[in-house]
């Protein structure tokens, strides 16, 4: 009886605990991908966006707001470690990509599969960052980066989409610990 009552924590606590773990995983993934050496020919500073795996899982199983929390946690972490410019870049890209993926996941017709949604949300992420870069620098010349970023979004979107497919069972098991 004692052990039973210990497990019986209320739903909100479980929700917060799971969100904390998912947020930590998103941060660790974005930290780890910094160690991958830059690929020549691609824009410097471009990342693979592995933390999008976690965001997309959250958006699909828990909804838009939890996914947005993770985006904000990630942006705050980027801001704390790399400065305010990094915060705004991460925040704008994260919010835009989370919004796009949530809309596509929620849409009744389900036009796109996981891969298509991952590609579009990666493109939305880059678009958000381009807009912030344009605002910070006060020019629109970063538009010349756009074709690079579009190709990059294609590659990383396919990659993160496939990885989500592989990691899905593990993430679902993790969520089931929290009865979510």
């Amino acid at each position: 009886m004692k052990s039973k009552s210990n497990i019986n924590i209320n739903a909100r606590t479980r929700f917060i605990a799971l969100l904390g773990i998912l947020g930590a995983q998103a941060i660790v993934l974005s930290l780890l991908e910094n160690f991958i050496p830059p690929v020549p020919g691609l824009p410097p500073g471009a990342k693979l966006g592995f933390s999008n795996i976690v965001t997309m899982f959250t958006a699909s199983t828990m909804g838009f707001m939890p996914a947005l929390y993770i985006t904000v946690i990630k942006a705050v972490f980027a801001g704390a470690t790399r400065g305010s410019a990094a915060f705004f870049m991460s925040f704008a890209g994260g919010v835009l990509s989370t919004a796009v993926m949530s809309l596509l996941l929620k849409s009744k017709r389900k036009t796109f599969g996981i891969i298509g949604i991952a590609v579009l949300s990666a493109a939305a992420h880059n678009l958000g960052q381009l807009i912030v870069a344009a605002i910070i620098s006060g020019t629109s010349l970063f538009v010349s980066y756009a074709p690079f970023l579009l190709i990059y979004a294609l590659i990383t979107g396919c990659l993160t989409g496939s990885m989500l497919k592989i990691i899905m069972p593990a993430l679902q098991r993790q969520s089931s610990f929290f009865k979510m």
Binding site: F57, S60, G113, I114, G116, V119, L120, A153
Partner: peptide, 18 residues
Amino acid sequence: MEKYVFFKKADIVLITLL
């Protein structure tokens, strides 16, 4: 999540378009 399809025809169209 099982209700989401991994890869659809629309994805191929999208990628080609991009």
